[in-house]
Design a protein around this nucleic acid. Structure first.
Lengths: 165, 165
DNA sequence: AAAAATGGTTATCAGATATAACTATTATCA
DNA sequence: TGATAATAGTTATATCTGATAACCATTTTT
């Protein structure tokens, strides 16, 4: 949560000016992870703004485009979002005619979610924009470095994935 | 946001069962970052629960302990939190007598934040717990891998730090 | 001395997230 | 088969985080 890069040059100058620094936080992996995620998420927000999408609506749209016929409960599980919260996300996408709730013939309780042509087009454009924004932030990282990081992040997810209540 | 590791084994089985998968999301660096951060943050939450601290209160406490005399506005800036939101965080820490708002003799508008003995002790214990929890999630990552990841995350922060509005 | 800027506060709002309770339908099994 | 349980989706609601506007007291600027 901080922006104290310069602090490293001059630690513990809290009284004087702008620089705060914490050895403790700097020693926590999660702290660095969180800060970088914030940066990337803020950037994502701006990347999606022209399309009037937010992170959650964009993610839902992508998953529906990539998984035609998906049901709401599956989508909710895939996004780690509670079903009640999923409803409003689907609602906004449906109201914009980016997706439709088709009925499932074999189960009249469920909806099969499908993207419309407009939805697929918007999804494609938005994804291009997101990738461009990401590239701007990541251009300093070599492909190998990126792969290492992604591998590490995937490992963390695997370890912690099913542990917490 | 998803938990679709197994999806990689069998992509595009949305209709059948539990596995959803998105090439698109998987190609986004920020997606992996966000998912891993969620895991780590959930873990952090549990690690801090015994101390009745949440991420923001913990972070604030650490920064005050590591930067005695810090002012609220400096802390807010360091945490990327708006000043109004900082107030309630400081309030809860002060109510628990973990910190005190000392007056700044040279500026009667400002408060100099200082941790109490109890605050420093709780901070130390909480940090030990957080580190233990982190270690459990990161034990698969070699020290070199961790360093690479942290270096990458720091780079991202540097690039994106001052760009977004 | 007047005007502008700063530190902290209050009130308020939007977004994300979590839970309980409801309906309609489907699945279970005695 | 018929009662019961489970599931898909919904509504309503509460909490937490995050952001903005407006305010008071004080300091700085001019």
């Amino acid at each position: 949560m901080t922006r104290a890069e310069d602090a490293k040059l001059e630690p513990n100058k809290a009284q004087s000016g702008v620089s705060q620094y914490s050895e403790t936080l700097d020693g926590l992996f999660g702290y660095h992870l969180k800060r970088a995620t914030n940066v990337l998420q803020l950037d994502l927000k701006h990347a999606l703004k022209p399309f009037d999408l937010r992170m959650l609506t964009y993610t839902a749209l992508v998953l529906i485009v990539d998984n035609p016929g998906l049901r709401q409960s599956q989508l909710a599980e895939a996004m780690d979002v509670e079903r009640p919260n999923m409803v409003v996300i689907i609602d906004t996408l449906e109201n914009r005619k980016l997706i439709i709730r088709d009925r499932v013939p074999t189960d009249r309780r469920a909806y099969a979610l499908n993207a419309t042509l407009a939805g697929r087009r918007l999804c494609e454009k938005a994804t291009m924009a997101v990738k461009q924004h990401e590239e701007r932030l990541l251009h300093q990282l070599s492909p190998e470095m990126r792969q290492t990081v992604i591998a590490a992040l995937t490992l963390i997810r695997k370890v912690g994935g099913g542990v917490a209540p």
